[in-house]
């Protein structure tokens, strides 16, 4: 049992790292396509070895620690960022049970009853990676970047949480697997909560510090933001953590709104074939959402800081609250509480 879980842990970590690796490639390719360019095409077929080349380049770079920095925090910072972004993948249900040699293998590392709460909790911890790294580098630009990143994450977490609560109310469970299972077939939450989906999507963009909300690292104002002083693989960890975050948030969006591993017409399959097709469906959704993330990045210019806060506090949170209230009233009516 433990060995089975260990193998699953390693596989899922490898998969999320691999997905993040190739989303860096997809990012570069997508950027090129949107700008009428070709993009990287010198490393193997479709430049599939490009992430490897990037990684080797990152490792070869000089790994300097500037003077007047808090050395230990400086080293721990990227580690925390990476750790928090990887750990969320433990509670995500990747598909229905597989049957291998007669024993059932759940495609989920930890089947929490409160998976969604765990994810929200880890999301709030992920601020620390950025904040500690920036604080330790003793650089005003880094600190500005980190302050922006943390305040932005805290403000958008609220609206995100409120939308998550609406989904929890509809499902009646905090478990991610229960949420997925309630959207069986084509019964996806996006059809019941379109506004919630849009708000959650915007919040996910802000949580992953991606454009148009990438104020934490806006080059024109803050040089590189919180990772200004970093080099070599420590910088790689920060950049990489962002891509892992993107992968995980795409997974969460598809779990909460797009039915996770459900796909229309799934009842005509069963057993291992169903499990594998479900995995395929889930990954297709994730890749599509990641592509939309990139599409948005190469379309919309960065928000101004006051616009960002205005959008978060004065628009998204009221919308999320009203959405929550209306959902609550409808649930109350359908459950017959007023009769």
């Amino acid at each position: 049992m433990i060995i089975e879980k260990l193998i699953l842990v390693i596989v899922i970590f490898a998969v999320s790292i691999l997905a993040a690796l190739y989303s860096t490639l997809l990012e570069r390719k997508a950027a090129a396509w949107f700008q009428d360019r070709i993009g990287p095409n010198r490393t193997g077929f479709f430049s599939l070895l490009q992430p490897l080349a990037d990684g080797v380049k990152m490792f070869i770079k000089e790994d300097g620690i500037p003077l007047n920095t808090d050395k230990w925090l400086f080293i721990i910072g990227p580690g925390i960022a990476m750790f928090t972004s990887l750990i969320t993948s433990t509670v995500i249900p990747w598909g229905p049970d597989l049957e291998i040699f007669g024993s059932k293998v759940a495609l989920q590392i930890a089947e929490f009853d409160m998976g969604i709460l765990f994810i929200m909790g880890v999301l709030s911890i992920s601020v620390y990676g950025i904040m500690i790294g920036a604080w330790a580098s003793n650089n005003k630009y880094s600190l500005y970047g980190a302050i922006r990143a943390s305040s932005q994450m805290i403000s958008y977490e609220l609206a995100m949480g409120l939308i998550a609560i609406t989904i929890i109310m509809m499902t009646g469970s905090l478990s991610l697997r229960a949420i997925v299972e309630s959207q069986h077939g084509m019964n996806w939450n996006i059809f019941y909560q379109p506004i919630g989906f849009v708000v959650f999507f915007i919040c996910a963009l802000a949580e992953t510090n991606r454009a148009p909300f990438d104020l934490a690292e806006c080059e024109s104002e803050l040089i590189g933001g919180y990772h200004t002083e970093y080099g070599s693989m420590k910088l790689g960890f920060y950049l990489f953590a962002e891509y892992v975050n993107m992968f995980i948030s795409a997974a969460i969006i598809s779990i909460l709104f797009l039915g996770g591993y459900n796909f229309p017409g799934m009842d005509s399959f069963s057993g291992n074939i169903l499990a594998i097709m479900c995995l395929g469906a889930f990954f297709t959704k994730i890749v599509l959402i990641i592509f939309i993330f990139m599409w948005i990045r190469w379309t919309i210019p960065r928000f101004r800081y006051d616009q960002l806060m205005h959008l978060g506090w004065k628009k998204l949170i009221p919308i999320a609250l009203i959405n929550l209230m209306i959902t609550g009233i409808i649930i109350a009516f359908t459950k017959g509480w007023f009769n």
Binding site: F34, Q35, R37, N41, W295, I296
Partner: peptide, 20 residues
């Protein structure tokens, strides 16, 4: 935003200007 995304989407299918 959707208008802008439509514009960038159209660029996906345009001819590349890159000279290899």
């Amino acid at each position: 935003i959707f208008g802008g995304m439509w514009i960038t989407f159209k660029h996906l299918f345009k001819k590349n200007v890159t000279l290899q």
